[in-house]
C-alpha cells in the first residue's frame, strides 16, 4: 500500500543548524495496517508525515502509494488519497464557514461550478449523526463556534468522507481535554475499522500505542528503531517498550509528555 524507500531529509544543510530529520528511512505499510508511531521529541515522526504528505520534498529516496510514485507530487494532489489530522484542532477546518460548507469542500463531489445538492446534504447529515455530537442539527452554523473536540471530530469526518487510501493522525487527540480525546479516539477506531482504512498514528501515549492497531513503530533520530506486530506486540508492555528503546538507542527515552504520563 505505502512503500517508503530510503528517504532522507536534512533541514538547513551546510549550516551550523543542519539537522537530519529523516535518515535513510524505509517502511512498508500493508493494506489495512493500523500502525502506531512512538518516539522521543524530535525523532522525526511529524517530519515523516510531512514527507508522506508532500509538505516538502525529500532529499533522496522514493515514496509509493498504492503502486503510484508520489515522491514528487505536490501536496494538494497527494491529498486526494491521503487524509491527515493535526494536533491543533483548528488546522483542519475553515472557521468562518458552516459545517455544511466545510464538508462540501472536503467531499469534493461534482465539478467546480456544482453546488451542494440535496443528496450531499443527506449524506452529510447521516455522517454527522455518526459522531453523536448533535452536529447534524447545526449544519448551518460556522465551524468557529464548535469546541476543539467537535472540530477534531468534524475534521476526522471530513478526512474520511471519501475514504482515503491512507489516513495520517498526528497526535490528533493531544490538544483535547481527556473526555473529548477519548471520544475522538473512539470515533477514530470506529471509522478506521468500518472503512478498513490504512492508518498511521503518532501518539505519545505508550499504552494506547500498544492497545490500538496491529503494528507499533518506534522512531529515533530520523530512523526506525524497531517495528513490532503480531504475537510479539501483544506480549509487549509499556516498561518493555522503554527497555527496548534503551537497549536499541543506548539512552533513556526523553519524550517529556510520555514521561509525565499525561494520558490520551
Amino acid at each position: 500500500m505505502l512503500s517508503i524507500r530510503h528517504i532522507s531529509k536534512t533541514f538547513y544543510p551546510g549550516t551550523a543548524n543542519a539537522k537530519t530529520a529523516l535518515d535513510d528511512l524505509s517502511l512498508e505499510v500493508a493494506q489495512g495496517d493500523f500502525i502506531s508511531i512512538i518516539g522521543a521529541n524530535g525523532a522525526g515522526k511529524s517530519t515523516l508525515f510531512n514527507a508522506i504528505c508532500g509538505t516538502f520534498l525529500t532529499d533522496s529516496g522514493a515514496i509509493l502509494l498504492d503502486g503510484q510514485d508520489i515522491t514528487l507530487l505536490p501536496e494538494h494532489k497527494r491529498a486526494f488519497h491521503i487524509g491527515r489530522l493535526f494536533q491543533d484542532p483548528l488546522r483542519g477546518t475553515a472557521p468562518g464557514m458552516t459545517i455544511e460548507e466545510n464538508l462540501a469542500l472536503a467531499a469534493g463531489h461534482g465539478g467546480w461550478i456544482s453546488t451542494v445538492s440535496k443528496a450531499d446534504k443527506k449524506l452529510f447529515r447521516e455522517k454527522l449523526s455518526l459522531l453523536g455530537m448533535d452536529l447534524e442539527n447545526r449544519m448551518r452554523q460556522p465551524v468557529g463556534l464548535l469546541s476543539g473536540g467537535q472540530r477534531q471530530a468534524l475534521t476526522l469526518m471530513m478526512a474520511t468522507i471519501d475514504p482515503p487510501k491512507l489516513l495520517l493522525l498526528d497526535e490528533h487527540t493531544a490538544a483535547l481535554d481527556p473526555a473529548a480525546a477519548e471520544k475522538v479516539l473512539e470515533l477514530t477506531e470506529k471509522i478506521v475499522a468500518q472503512q478498513h482504512l490504512t492508518c498511521l498514528m503518532i501518539t505519545h501515549n505508550m499504552a494506547s500505542a500498544l492497545a490500538l492497531g496491529n503494528r507499533t513503530v518506534m522512531m529515533d533520530r530520523g530512523r526506525i528503531l524497531f517495528d513490532v506486530s503480531g504475537q510479539e506486540r501483544r506480549d509487549l508492555t509499556v516498561p518493555d517498550l522503554l527497555e527496548r528503546f534503551r537497549a536499541s538507542s543506548g539512552r533513556a527515552l526523553d519524550n517529556d509528555r510520555m514521561l509525565l504520563g499525561t494520558d490520551a
Binding site: 505536490p74 501536496e75 494538494h76 494532489k77 491529498a79 486526494f80 487524509g83 491527515r84 483548528l90 488546522r91 483542519g92 477546518t93 475553515a94 472557521p95 468562518g96 464557514m97 460548507e101 466545510n102 462540501a104 469542500l105 472536503a106 469534493g108 461534482g110 465539478g111 467546480w112 461550478i113 456544482s114 453546488t115 451542494v116 471530513m158 478526512a159
Partner: peptide, 26 residues
C-alpha cells in the same frame, strides 16, 4: 460563491491548510 469553486475561494481566505487538504491548490 455558492459553487464548489466559490466555497474553495472563501476557504482560501479562511484556512489555506484546509483547502490544501481538500485536494485543492490554494
Amino acid at each position: 460563491l455558492r459553487t464548489r469553486l466559490g466555497l474553495a475561494i472563501r476557504a482560501t481566505g479562511n484556512n489555506p491548510d484546509m483547502v490544501r487538504s481538500s485536494s485543492i491548490n490554494p
